[in-house]
């Protein structure tokens, strides 16, 4: 009798639990059930225009960042975006692409605020300058408005090793920037022209982003590649406020008209394993290696 009772009870209990399991919906996570959120996008590492950075990479891919910016644009619950920047810069195209996407976000009425971490220099400052407001910590390293390319000349070393490179090319400039020979004066002039043009684009972007806060002349005076602290950047007008990540969140909420504590949605959170592995990534090891690359 007891055995039957217990068996019946177990069966009934299991049925009840299964019905609850099928019918009960867990409460939606905070990112989905709130009507007013701030989307946080992290720009961490060297800016590059490639997609798919892979596990352990220390690259901020413009393709991935543009994708999350588009997500922020489409999601109705996201009323403002905070871009947390910790990057020494990168390629001009990556910065331009992200800057363009930020402009689109601003056009649909979603304010974008930049919060600078350890470093937000060069191309990363380009991104920050595209935002409505910029927050920096007093010890943040920023600025570095300039363009650079480095060519390592291995000719003497190769000569010592007895290695010669034969080049067959379709035009006189096709191997411009080669590590196997000196730059010719004409090539130097061409490259300088390219760098100057890109520098001009950089200045225009900063002038556009900081309009009303800095004049073009003021920007020109400091656009010589120098890096400055967050405090100095505030004095110069390169940033709007001194404050940390949470101050920037409050600023984004204020611009979006969100009252009370805003919900925060991490749009491209990096998992801790990737963060750890990025310290040992190939890109990190190759950073600064001999290869020609124009970068902000």
């Amino acid at each position: 009798m007891k055995q039957r009772l217990l068996t019946g009870f177990i069966i009934a209990f299991c049925l009840v639990v299964l019905v609850v399991a099928v019918r009960w919906s867990p409460p939606a996570s905070s990112s989905r059930n709130v009507s007013e959120s701030i989307g946080v996008i992290r720009v961490e590492g060297t800016l590059m225009s490639g997609s798919g950075t892979g596990l352990g990479s220390n690259i901020a891919s413009s393709v991935e960042i543009m994708e999350v910016l588009q997500t922020a644009q489409k999601r109705d619950d996201i009323k403002a975006v905070l871009i947390r920047i910790d990057s020494p810069g990168g390629t001009p195209v990556a910065a331009q692409e992200i800057g363009e996407e930020i402009n689109k976000l601003k056009k649909v009425g979603k304010p974008v605020v930049a919060s600078m971490g350890d470093v937000a220099a060069s191309g990363a400052y380009w991104i920050a300058a595209s935002c409505d407001e910029i927050y920096a910590n007093p010890a943040t390293t920023t600025g570095s408005i300039g363009v650079i390319t480095e060519i390592t000349n291995l000719k003497d070393l190769l000569d010592k090793l007895g290695i010669r490179t034969e080049v067959i090319k379709s035009g006189s400039y096709k191997d411009m920037g080669s590590s196997f020979r000196e730059l010719t004066p004409q090539e130097r002039q061409l490259l300088q022209g390219l760098i100057d043009e890109l520098h001009g684009q950089f200045l225009q972007q900063v002038e556009k982003g900081r309009r009303g806060k800095m004049t073009l002349e003021e920007i020109r005076r400091i656009a010589d590649g120098r890096v400055v602290s967050g405090t100095e950047a505030r004095k110069l007008g390169l940033v709007d406020h001194l404050g940390n990540y949470y101050d920037a969140l409050d600023g984004a909420a204020r611009l979006a008209g969100i009252t009370g504590e805003p919900a925060v949605v991490e749009l491209n959170a990096v998992d801790p394993w990737s963060r750890l592995l990025s310290r040992f990534s190939l890109e990190s090891l190759l950073n600064g290696a001999a290869r020609m690359q124009i970068r902000f």
Binding site: V17, L18, A21, V22, W24, P26, A28, S29, R32
Partner: peptide
Amino acid sequence: FSAVVSFSLIRGEMAALLPE
């Protein structure tokens, strides 16, 4: 039984990772 019930516990978190 245990698998069905425990999946229902994490269903919300998994759905939150997918596009709406």
